[in-house]
């Protein structure tokens, strides 16, 4: 972000106006049923969405879907984090691990996690486990790759400095490799969190019986279009909150980084 010139109140006001403008355009496009190749006849107005959201928030079923999605994200992301960081550290630091573990990862990486849905349904016994698998897969690749890059980017001079201060190989791994790779690992977690939401929602839309993705897709099927938008907004808010959580945790783990860099990550 560019350093804020002393514009004071002007910039926040411009930003609020920008959001206001977005809602005004949405409101009139749907109110007047605009049809300019892009058709707004079936799109709910902001007020319909607001009413629907209020109705959903009063019922219990909506929270059940949110909890189902959150549980899958949490499980999938946790597994991906543990596996991704552990493998990434090994692959990045040990040539033997790179030669033996990295080729299959590189081979599978270009396949989007969503393309795994059919295979995942066959591989895993329950709907829940197959969706968690897709979510794990989505987060795993960004985490492992960023961890590898983080380790490979460690300044060799720091390793030399550590050895000339009496550090053995285990101490170098613990004191230099892991903290040195940490900024990159946090970037990986941040990207991984985003990708795992994409994968979760797609998987729920395709094969789920619960979850926010399922909720959104079913709403479309039963012609409840304002419910579709409520689902979309819910996904957006949940994704935003989980990214903020990752940033917060990363920020806490890396007190040495200047604020500017933290905000960028």
């Amino acid at each position: 972000m560019a350093p804020a010139p002393d514009g004071g109140w002007q910039r926040p006001v411009r930003r609020v106006l920008s959001i206001g403008f977005f809602f005004v355009v949405w409101h009139y496009s749907t109110k007047w049923d605009v049809d300019l190749y892009v058709r707004f006849q079936n799109i709910p107005t902001p007020w319909e969405v607001l009413e629907e959201a209020a109705a959903q928030l009063r019922g219990a079923a909506f929270y059940g879907h949110i909890l189902a999605s959150l549980e899958r994200i949490w499980l999938g992301f946790a597994v991906a984090t543990v596996l991704g960081i552990a493998l990434g550290l090994l692959i990045g630091w040990f040539r033997l691990a790179e030669d033996t573990l990295f080729p299959p990862i590189e081979l599978l990486r270009p396949i989007p996690a969503v393309a795994w849905v059919p295979l995942s349904i066959m591989l895993w016994p329950t709907e829940r486990s197959s969706i968690v698998f897709i979510t794990t897969l989505g987060a795993f690749f960004p985490i492992v790759l960023n961890t590898v890059h983080g380790v490979e980017g460690i300044d060799r001079q720091l390793v030399r400095a550590a050895t000339s201060l009496g550090a053995g190989s285990a101490a170098i791994f613990r004191e230099v490799v892991i903290p040195g790779a940490l900024p990159s690992i946090v970037t990986g977690l941040s990207v991984g969190m985003g990708v795992s939401w994409i994968c979760l929602i797609s998987a729920e839309m395709i094969s789920g019986q619960f979850g926010v993705g399922y909720f959104t897709w079913v709403a479309y099927g039963i012609v409840k279009y304002s419910q579709v938008v409520v689902g979309m907004l819910t996904i957006g808010v949940l994704g935003m909150l989980s990214s903020a959580l990752i940033r917060l945790v990363g920020w806490r783990c890396m007190p040495w980084l200047p604020r500017r860099v933290k905000d960028g990550g």
Binding site: T163, S164, G166, W256
Partner: peptide, 19 residues
């Protein structure tokens, strides 16, 4: 091999930034 009996002061950027 390197050892603590022969400490090295480098030109720059050799402190552990996270410590």
């Amino acid at each position: 091999a390197p050892g603590a009996d022969r400490g090295v002061v480098f030109q720059q950027h050799s402190l552990f930034p996270w410590k």
